[in-house]
Simulated scan of single mutants.
Amino acid sequence: MKIKDIQFGIMEIPLKKPFKTALRTANVLSNVVVMIETDTGNQGYGEAPPTGVITGDTQGSIIGAIREHIKKSLIDRDIADIENNMVLLNHSILGNTSAKAALDMALYDLYAQVYQAPLYQILGGCRSELITDKTISVNEPEEMVKDSLETVQEGYRTLKVKVGKNIKLDLNRLDKIRKTVGDNIKLRLDANQGWSVKEAIAAIKKMEERGFNIEFVEQPVKAGDIEGLKKVTDSVTTPIMADESVFSPEEALHLLQNRATDMINIKLMKAGGIHNALKICAIAETSGVECMVGCMLESKIAVTAAAHLAAAKKVVTKVDLDSPLLCAEDPISGGIIYEKDKIILPEAIGLGLGKIKGIGWKSF
Rank of each mutant, 00 (worst) to 15 (best):
K2G: 09
I3R: 12
F8G: 02
E12T: 15
K20Q: 07
T21L: 00
N42G: 00
T51K: 03
G52M: 09
I63C: 03
I79D: 04
I79G: 01
D81R: 07
D81F: 01
L89C: 13
I93P: 01
N96K: 01
D104A: 01
Q113C: 07
A117V: 06
A117M: 14
I122R: 12
G124W: 01
I136H: 07
P141Y: 11
S148F: 09
T158N: 12
V161D: 03
K162R: 11
K176I: 02
K179R: 12
G182L: 07
L187F: 14
L187C: 12
N192M: 06
Q193L: 00
Q193M: 11
A203C: 15
K205S: 04
K206W: 06
E208C: 10
G211P: 12
V217F: 10
K222E: 08
V232L: 09
P239M: 06
P239V: 04
A242S: 15
A242G: 07
S245N: 07
V246P: 03
S248N: 09
S248A: 13
S248G: 06
P249G: 08
E251S: 08
A252D: 05
L253R: 14
T261Q: 05
L268V: 12
L268C: 10
M269D: 14
A271H: 00
G272E: 08
A277N: 03
L278G: 11
K279V: 00
A282N: 11
A282I: 00
A284W: 02
E285H: 12
C291Y: 10
V293R: 06
V316M: 09
L321F: 03
D322V: 01
A328D: 15
S333N: 09
I336N: 03
I343P: 05
I343Y: 11
I344F: 10
E347Y: 03
I349Q: 13
K355A: 14
K355N: 11
I356P: 04
